[in-house]
């Protein structure tokens, strides 16, 4: 069991410092946008002007988690599918159109994927293990696996999260590259995990990069953990076929509430946590992520009554 001791999400839902995001889930409209906290509370004004949305979201959510646990993290693991798109596009535009020998380096510096993790280390003055994983729709799940490796290695307080940002240009490529009708979105969800007990835990996470039969995969995962679908109190998925096949007690397609970004399953885990926390009879929630064909991530979240 990998116990959740803090959570912070910035999303298209009213999620930041909302103690029960499950209860207040609202389907997104087409023109929905991120509901941001007041970033000035977390980031000095000079830095804030320089930081793109994904950096602001990742940094604020991490600082919020740090404030909740009141101990320094001994590992920081970040997942991002597409990284710092805004700065990447900005630097592309700059060097492709400029005739000057002197370009501003800020967008280049902030374009690398691990700017999010780097900014968190700077913001928290943290010298620990600092890792960034980028694996398309499974960026959050592989990060969660790394966090679990850290906890198995003996770390006591691991920050793990995922963040991705929408830029307008994505709409230009969506018809060709993102075959999905959900509105494009942004989001960041961060968690503090520890072996020390709390109410709700991540029990297991798995990835399958060669998934030919999604429904069978889910069955296998449940078998490995000796649980049946009847015991799952809430299924959070990204594919309505799953819900139709298994007829679980309760289910949501999390994309209705997150919109489409490749690390949206991280927010589903936040929703699962709050569901279990406030639904006292509930024990298990399952997050299934198949946003890219053939690539499936499954996360089991549990109330630990032992």
């Amino acid at each position: 069991m990998y116990y959740i001791h803090a959570i912070a999400s910035i999303s298209h839902q009213d999620s930041f410092r909302n103690s029960n995001v499950y209860k207040s889930l609202t389907p997104l409209s087409d023109d929905s946008d991120v509901i941001s906290p007041d970033f000035k509370e977390f980031i000095p004004p000079a830095a804030l002007r320089r930081l793109s949305p994904v950096l602001r979201m990742g940094l604020a959510a991490s600082i919020e988690c740090r404030n909740q646990v009141a101990t320094d993290f001994d590992a920081i693991v970040v997942g991002t599918a597409l990284g710092c798109l805004k700065d990447t596009e900005k630097f592309l535009s700059t060097f492709l159109t400029s005739t000057s020998d002197f370009l501003s380096p800020t967008a280049f510096i902030q374009s690398t994927h691990n700017t999010i993790g780097g900014q968190i280390s700077l913001g928290l003055n943290n010298h620990a293990y600092n890792m960034t994983h980028t694996q398309n729709n499974l960026s959050f799940e592989v990060s969660l696996m790394d966090a679990i490796l850290c906890l198995n290695d003996g770390k006591k307080n691991v920050l793990i999260g995922a963040a991705d940002e929408k830029i307008d240009f994505l709409a230009t490529v969506q018809p060709d590259l993102i075959p999905n009708e959900f509105p494009l979105s942004s989001g960041a969800s961060f968690f503090a995990l520890s072996p020390a007990k709390s109410e709700i835990a991540i029990q297991a996470v798995s990835t399958n990069f060669n998934a030919t039969n999604l429904l069978e995969d889910i069955g296998t995962f449940l078998d490995v953990h000796d649980i049946s679908m009847e015991e799952i109190d809430l299924l959070l998925h990204s594919n309505d076929d799953i819900e139709a096949h298994f007829s679980p007690k309760e289910a949501i397609n999390y994309l209705d509430f997150t919109g489409f970004h490749y690390s949206a399953s991280s927010y589903a885990v936040h929703v699962a946590h709050d569901f279990l926390k406030y639904r006292h009879m509930a024990k298990y929630a399952l997050v299934v992520n198949d946003l890219c064909p053939g690539k499936v991530g499954i996360t089991l979240i549990t109330r630990d009554e032992a």
Binding site: A81, L82, G83, T112, H113, N114, G117, N130, M131, T132, H133, T134, Q135, N136, L138, S139, V142, T207, F209, N210
Partner: peptide
Amino acid sequence: ASGTSSEEISNELKISDFINTISTA
């Protein structure tokens, strides 16, 4: 996407049990 480059390399080697990309510059 950086993750896609690793999926392409894995495909060429027929490796599929686990694929991951690390991007820390």
